[in-house]
Design a protein around this nucleic acid. Structure first.
Lengths: 206, 206, 206, 206
DNA sequence: GATGAATGAGCATTCATTCAT
DNA sequence: AATGAATGAATGCTCATTCAT
């Protein structure tokens, strides 16, 4: 998984018993509903990270170990699935900014953590105005950044978002280490200080 | 056309000398071959700019006024067609750097012109190591930039390419003017001076 | 509703006594069972009239405010649901024929009323021998018509049913008025006298 | 085949040689284009006659022994395929009306022949205003009938079309003989004289 | 007995690729 | 060397049906 983000990553609902039978795999009733939803989001996070936001939804369903129909029941369309995936990323950033000793470098570190883990998140912050949901999500990031900015700075909130987009655009590479290295060098070229690169949870360890 | 780039844009090869023959358009030998190739590149530039690099190749062939089979004769796969499209962009940049009074700002201006005109070019410079062709093309840009750099600068060639990628990543927006505005502000955040934004040809007018 | 047919149309079984319980709507025993069955028939009448007999059964369940499973508990398959819907239409015709001053024109008027209101009823009388249920229902109509026929007529019961099928086949059109106009002209071409077009209930008003 | 209508019924393009290989069946080049188109129409005539106009198009392609893509190349959508099928029926009727000794009964005989052979044709004449193509086709039938009508008749062209729709609606039954018997009795109930039931070609035999 | 979620087969449609002419 | 048609795998989406709760 590219971006677990949740301590208790839900297990795919698939390789259960009862699959040994011939025909259709057992209908496990509504007990698995919540588990399926989580598995779909987790699978979508992986698939979108690997293949981009246009990846086949059938691949998401397959990786989640869930029928196609269940995917469509939980998420009416591709956008609502993507939103669910990205919503988690944004929530983490908001949580990071809500901490007691939150400042801009610390938040940028969290942003960078997500940028280097999720291609989908990169796409979110790079592409502007691509549907109401995407705007809402990137707007939340913008709000967080604007609030963290020290008084008397020369940069507008738009400038901050532009800087994030610039780093987003630059972040590419086959390995995670490579992506982090590039991201940090990019922030350096922009003259920005960046705190430790981590999701919010890890902040406890600091 | 989003990125004409060539003063003499080749005409689609279609309803042309076929008036001579009866039913089917005559096979006109290697004369049409060159014309078809050019028409395919021109069509691909438009289609890729409008629909992205995953646009259906059938749309390219249709717009070029050329059969599907001819497209595959000239370009074995999607990548080689894209390379041919982007090769023109890179050649323009090389030409700009070969001029008598070429310096880094002037070349960056040309780079910016292409970034704001061609979505495909943005993708080229943003995604690293995506196949040998793409690497060769971005390598040529790297060479050009390295050569233009004034002696005694603190930035490596990698840094320059990274900066270009950062601007590439930030460039988005519905209108051309918007894309140019964003690109220039991005360079500004990087502390770079940028010459006039133009393709090489226009440099004569300066 | 295109064909209410019942003065006391049953209400959807949905947001009802559930206010008493906490989360899930309470299982209210066999009281709701009857109400659900009626709601399903009413919903099916509407949906089948609007979208034809192949309308998704999920749409019927949704409009009835009832779970999918309940639909299948009450009606084993699509045919048995359709039969339940059409049974009401046939009962109305039988009731019309049971009245004190019932004669053929009067019954044909009632038949026409249903033909012009319910696409499903048109299908019933047009398609012959399509399953035992359909045959039973159209057989009842046949019986009614045969009984109403004046002695010494030249038409057999089969002829009467054929005439009804002919009118059924011709009845089409976007508006109710249009359908009635066509139906009456069709009867005229057949040389049949037709009483007032109305469901049985309205006969009291005459 | 339910409605051959053409003396030289095209053979399905399918069970050719070269199918013995493992993977994809051979691409037979553009030679088979015309044959495929004819096979598609023939297959559609059968499938539409058996399953109605909403039959799966994949079934048509399969029966024609043709790939799905070829179907879509020849016919952009379901309507254009259906039109191609029904166009033949209408052309036969027009040809029948163009003969030297054409009169209304003779044309009605031909109409009846098609009604009893093609469910799709029944649908065409029964459903009004279902798209421009359908209206055009039924309009042509209307024109033919109007022209054949003897001077001084009491029936309008609309009445004639209504009568045809009535017979269309009544025609149903498992066997061809049954359908013909019903159709002829239906015309009798309408008081219409009907010539021999046959497609135009057979008129030579008379 | 109600509920609502799970499941996957099925259909429409697109498109990369091959190939006879 | 161009052409344009053939092919079927792949994908999106729907819906009938089953089943644990």
């Amino acid at each position: 998984m590219t971006n677990p983000a949740e301590p208790s990553a839900p297990q795919p609902a698939a390789p259960d018993a009862a699959a040994a039978g011939g025909g259709r795999s057992a209908n496990q009733g509504r007990r698995v509903a919540a588990r399926n939803r989580a598995a779909l989001i987790a699978a979508a996070r992986e698939v979108f990270a690997e293949q981009g936001l246009n990846a086949p939804l059938s691949a998401v369903a397959r990786r989640a170990g869930v029928g196609q129909g269940s995917l469509y029941r939980h998420f009416a369309d591709r956008v609502s699935l993507a939103s669910a995936v990205l919503d988690e990323n944004v929530r983490h950033i908001e949580r990071a900014a809500a901490g007691p000793d939150a400042d801009l470098p610390r938040v940028l570190g969290v942003v960078t953590w997500h940028l280097t883990r999720s291609t989908a998140f990169v796409d979110l912050l790079r592409v502007r105005g691509d549907g109401a949901e995407a705007q809402a999500l990137s707007g939340r990031v913008r709000t967080v950044l604007a609030r963290c900015q020290p008084a008397g700075t020369r940069l507008t909130a738009d400038d901050l978002m532009l800087a994030v987009a610039m780093v987003s655009g630059a972040v590419a590479g086959p390995t995670l280490a490579e992506r982090e290295r590039i991201a940090l060098r990019a922030w350096q070229l922009l003259g920005a200080r960046v705190g430790p690169v981590r999701p919010w949870e890890a902040a406890d360890d600091a």
